[in-house]
Design a protein around this nucleic acid. Sequence first.
DNA 1: TCGGGCATCCCCTGATTGTGGTATGTATAG
DNA 2: CTATACATACCACAATCAGGGGATGCCCGA
Lengths: 213, 213
Amino acid sequence: MNSIRVSIFEDNKHLRESLYYLINGTEGFICTGTYNDCSDLVFQLKRNPPNVVLMDIEMPGINGIEAVKIIKHELPAIQVLMQTVFHDDDNIFNAICAGASGYILKTTSPAGYMEAIKDVYNGGSPMSGSIARRVLELFQKNIMPVTNKDYQLTPKEKEILQHLVKGKSFKMIADAISASYETVRTHMKNIYTKLHVNSNTEAVSKALQEKIV
Amino acid sequence: MNSIRVSIFEDNKHLRESLYYLINGTEGFICTGTYNDCSDLVFQLKRNPPNVVLMDIEMPGINGIEAVKIIKHELPAIQVLMQTVFHDDDNIFNAICAGASGYILKTTSPAGYMEAIKDVYNGGSPMSGSIARRVLELFQKNIMPVTNKDYQLTPKEKEILQHLVKGKSFKMIADAISASYETVRTHMKNIYTKLHVNSNTEAVSKALQEKIV
DNA sequence: TCGGGCATCCCCTGATTGTGGTATGTATAG
DNA sequence: CTATACATACCACAATCAGGGGATGCCCGA
């Protein structure tokens, strides 16, 4: 079966070489390249594409986070596993926001390293509880905020609100729903009352932010 | 120092009692209650509030996921750690979307259980790589969809746009940024040009949907 | 049958926006 | 030194919106 192809970006020569031998010395893994910085990043990765990139977060020149952004933009299929010497939550979090699939501490055992690489390759995202929590919190706050407060909007009102969000004027909405301008206005008044707003912009804002539309 | 207070929701009597003795038998932990279903959930939790709830995901009556929703709605300070017999990604994922802070397999060792509880209590979110990946993907897709088309808005223009999104009128914005009404209007014209829109509602809509704000 | 919720329409008045101009001062890059 | 970008400011006119009314018809549940 095919080996998991791994590239290493790490400025510390000793660690870089250790990882190289570790990976090539493990059944089912092969190292496609080691690099001490991110110059020619895309070129190198395209010439000899890995499945997984092991990326140091602290590096001279282009740092690991920038590198992740570039990789995910140019070669989105490649999974990036960040590695860092210490638990720098902020940087790790940023790396994950940039598209990294997981991260690992450099103090991890060789077996743990291989485990994490395999996990990433197989679609997992190894990360610590504290990083996971930060991701979760942002996640729960921004995605899920199915803040489904129920404003008791009628179907017609929702329909009108949708048109409004699309940027239509009252006149255009009237046209779209085959009703008179005044009807739309009446509906809008009712929407304003229900949403506790008093302008079209506020209504649009609330509709989008609370996912009423 | 204070012990970590833990409540157990688990329909299997054997496991429930094992956990009870494990928790009460461990230094620094105390079990505030064991329940075999979620009836009177809120009442019980309010009467004897824990720091962490250990919640079985598969339960008769109100299932674990519903229970999480209720807990996070009524007592958001309580951290919920889900437990499940097997790696049911979908359910775990749903539980996490509902507000759970992490999860643990029932096959986990006693030491691992205590570790996970402590992790959750300390603000971590223990979860497997595969769950983490699903969260990450949704996260990166929905939060980060830094659909960052760059509209080249100046700082001032962005500031004004932010006020607009908050529902303020031109007059109020002028006041907020200490500029004249006419200045705000000029900025708005420029914003419209850059965003290719021609009304305040459209601008708000675009600003929110493309996360320009 | 009566009231309530919903959708439909109309009027008037004043406030706010949209559009198209012009213009000045201050940086900053070339 | 000279464009160029940016923030600032003003005017005028047309269009649209907000807030206050009032009104009709339909359907459904009490």
